[in-house]
Every structure is written in C-alpha cells, then in structure tokens.
Design a protein around this nucleic acid. Sequence first.
RNA 1: GAGAGUGUAGCUCAGUCGGUAGAGCAUUCGACUUUUAAUCGAAUGGUCCUGGGUUCAAGUCCCAGCACUCUCACCA
Length: 538
Amino acid sequence: MQLPRNDTMNQNPNKGPAATPGEGEDATDPRVARREKMSQIEAMGYDPFGSRFDNRDMLGKCIDKASEIKFKTEAGDLIDLPSFDDPDLDYRQWKSDQGPGEEVGPTVRVSGRIMLMRTKGKLIFINIKDWTGSIQLFIGKQQVGEEDFALAKLFDLGDLVGAEGRLGRTNTGELTVFAEKLYFHTKMLDPPPDKHAGLTNVDLRQRMRYADLAFNEGPMETFVNRTKIIKSVRATLDADDFCEVEGPTLHVIAGGAAARPFETHHNALDMPLTMRIALELHLKRLMVGGMERVYELGRVYRNEGLSPRHNPEFTMLEAYQAYGDYETMMDLTERVICNAIETIGGGFKREFAGQEIDFTPPFKRETYADLFQAATGVDAADEAAVTKYAQSLGLETKGKHPDVIRNEIFEEKVEDTLEGPIFVIDYPASICPLTKRKRDNPEIAERFELFICGMELANAYTELNDPDLQQQLFETQLEGLDEEESMAKMDHDFIRALRHAMPPAGGLGIGIDRLVMILTGQKSIRDVILFPVLRPTE
RNA sequence: GAGAGUGUAGCUCAGUCGGUAGAGCAUUCGACUUUUAAUCGAAUGGUCCUGGGUUCAAGUCCCAGCACUCUCACCA
C-alpha cells in the first residue's frame, strides 16, 4: 500500500521534515508520532482507515436519551436523576445522598472525531464529535480490558473512533458513554489545529475548509443554514407554481448584466464561449415559450475584482412571473426572505455588522427620487442642480448622461446609508436597459433594488417586452464602448425571441450568497461560500 | 488596480533600544480510576515568508518580491 503524501498544515507543504517513521528520526514531530501509532494500530490487527460501521447512535440522539438514565438504588428502585440545568447542582453530593447504587442508562454505539482527550492514569476521557453533537467517552482500563485500553492509548486528537457502552453521568454530571468496547475508524495523519483556538488563520480556513469545518465551531452551522435557506427559497417559489429550469452556463454572448465575463473556448467547434454573467435572457426566452412562472437558482461568473462581498462565481436566483410587474416581485421578495428566516429561526429582528435589522414585513418602500432629495437636498429632476452638486462632490460630469451622474451621486451618498431592509423603487430609466418605463413617465423605470446594510441584495423590474425598444436600448448601451470595453454584445436571438411576444412580466434577481451572509451574520462572502476562489500557493 | 496592515515552532501568539529565539497547546517520557482547554514533573521542536542591502552584529532598520487581511475602485 502506498502511503499518502505528507502534506502539512503549513502554507508551504514542502516545508518541514520527512514524516515517515524511521527516516525523519524526529520523535517529537507530531506527524511522525501519528504514523508510528498508525503502524502499531495496524500491528494490533485494526485497519487504520477503517470500514463500514452500521447501527450508529448519532450523538444528538444520545443527548436526547440522557433522560432515560436512572439511578438504581440498592433496593432496586429506579429514581430520576436531578436536573442538570441547575448550575448549583453537586451531582457527587446528590449521589452520595442516595446511598449505594448505580446509574442505569441505555447502551449506545457511537463514533466521531476526537476533539479533546485527557488521560488520567488508567482512565482516559475523550470528547468525540459527530455532526449532530458531541459527547464524552469514559475509557477505564478495568472496564474495557487490556487490549482496548492499549488501543485507546494510540488515539490522537482528530482520529475517528467508535465505542459501545452505557450512557451515564460522571461525578461532575457530564453526560458520558462508559465504554465497554472500542473501535478504530480512521487515523488523522496530519496534526490538528490548536485544540482550543481552532484554526483562526483566515487564509488557511478557506484553503483547508475541511479543517475549518472539522475543528471550528461556527462554519458547519453556517453552511447547513445556507443549505436550509436555499431549500426554503425553492420551496417558496415551488409553492407559487414556479417552474425551476437549468439554463446554459456557456454562452455565445454573455448578456443580462453589465459585467466582464470569463472567456473560454470550445475545441470541436473552434469557437469562443463565455461563462454566463446572468440568467436573465434565457429565462425570458422561456417565458416567450409559455413558461409563465420560471426560475433558475444557479451559479453565475463575473470576471471582476474580489472583495468581502464579491466572489468571481456566486449563486443567483432569478425568477420571472408573466402578467406580473415589479410590485408583484416585491411581494415575492418579501415572502422568499421571510420564509427563509422562519426556516433557520432566530426571528425577524436580526443583527448584522452591529446593526439591528427588522425583517418584519412589509419592508419599507421609498422612491429613488425621494431618497436622493433627502440625502442631498437636491431635486433629482433638476438637471442643472444635480450637475452642480456632482461637481461639488468632485465627480466628473463632462460627457456623461444626466442619469449616470444622478446614479453616481446616489451610490455615493445614499446606498451606504440604507440599513434596510428597504425597497428603493423607480429608477432613472436610462440606467435600466432591460426595464419597462412607467406609463405616465418615460423617464422613470419600474425597477426596485432591495438594500440591507448598504448592500444590494435584490434587483427587480417590470420587464421590458418591446423588441424594438429593447434593440434600441442595447444599441445605445453599446455606443461609445470600444471593442475591449464592450461587455455586452447585441444578442439578436434574444431580440427575435421578444418579437415572438413575451408576456408583460415581473422579474427578480436575488444574490443568494449575500442573503445567506445577512441571515447568518457572516461579514464576508468567503464565509458563506465553501470553496471561494483563492490564489494557489506553491 | 490603489492605499494600510500582517507573515516567527505542527497550531495560537509574544519578541523592548539592532546584541545567544520565547510562551501556551500539540509531540515524547514519567505520576495519577470520575476528568472538563484535567493537573504536576521533564524533554524535544525554528529556512523568524523570499531575495538583496546597511551594520562588528538584523526576527528587529532599508529596498524589492510573494501571500493573506482590511479599506477603496470595478461589480451583485
């Protein structure tokens, strides 16, 4: 059998002494010690990488079974144990008050990763953890016998081990499996991080997500919550009869958003392809085809900078509802978010980055123009005043469309101050090339963005379904961009699709990673993405 | 892409004015049959991110590079 290569917890895996026993000669290298113990475990007839282990009692269930533990008196009476919620309880005293007798608990069969270990003469206390909980094992030489005790002495922190025994309480009241039989599942060959501090190096936590999940407290809960949130989002849409689809991730023309795409190439067709930057244009094609309520929850890719709020690949929800409009989508957005909150619990009043956010529906709704005026004192419709104000902020105004200037001011002065949740509604039309204008005011687009803690979480429109106007807006958007800068190219097939009649509709996009951030209290997007993009070490 | 910070033992971190490299945990040995980050005694463990420079002397000062973090920009 070939032994796996010796990688270390170090940033430079080539650093450090050889970890093969007998070669390194360094008896204090934890990796050497672990391999030495692995050999001894093997010599005792155990497989250091284990095999199938059926009928496990999950530790969460074992904790639930604690109430089944009784104290059996000498007379044979079974009495309930005292409440361990009481911090003043002296269980040792309580037991001695009962006189002679013993605890009787159910027999369990458990396994998990060794998180803590204390040897005390002929006793070993081990805390193991599985993904439902953790529990203490009591291993006494007399109780398990010479052979199992010898095995237990070869255990290391991080090993996966199993035990069978009765559930009980130690003198201090700690719920404990009093082992009668031990099992060995898998040896951890690399040394684990500090047993108390865990793995705190942010870089290593992301590079070695396995170690982050295995040895740190929060990450498992965050990622399980992420899964729950995504399931809840699907459930909300499915309950509304939305149809989930899978659009192409390889696009000939990456459209539907303003972002640089990743470029790739198809060999057989000898054709350039780009990774999608949005889901929009294909979902709209499906609405033309008659999928009246359609959504996709999937990965999109944008070749842009990284930040605590940006990862090059991220998960996006886009949903389209025929015969709706942006108001329809506001209601849907509220339902999606509120249902997700109820799924993971914790109530509508939540904290993020030190701010309390109240998600009790309905969320606030304010127009772009009102927020603009409130923050700047300038009437957004007064072009001259807006330009003057922009110049006072030091913004370049020459040759820019007035709406672009407005939006720069808005982003500068308003967005960061929006604690939310708040729907900002009715955007200047010319910055919304895929949006239908208000019937009574063509300057204003029927669009909203949902802001929470200054972060854009959702974006929705009353969708533009006029093919001629759509084509014209695309052309305007492409004007002035040179070949290099041009992020979007005219998608003629999309225009043709619109000519086949797309129903009036509301469309919604939600940044799922950001939603998970807000709902789980994680300040960095990298803490809600299992494997964020990282530069390789080497 | 710009600015600031960080990089020291397997992990978490100290390191003063430039003068022999430190602690806790982990590891190894010893004691301990109800421990709680067990405790106690001993030992071991270093390419101080990399490469240059200044200096009698550099973990420490200077320059360049690499990686990460934060802030900003692009963006959702």
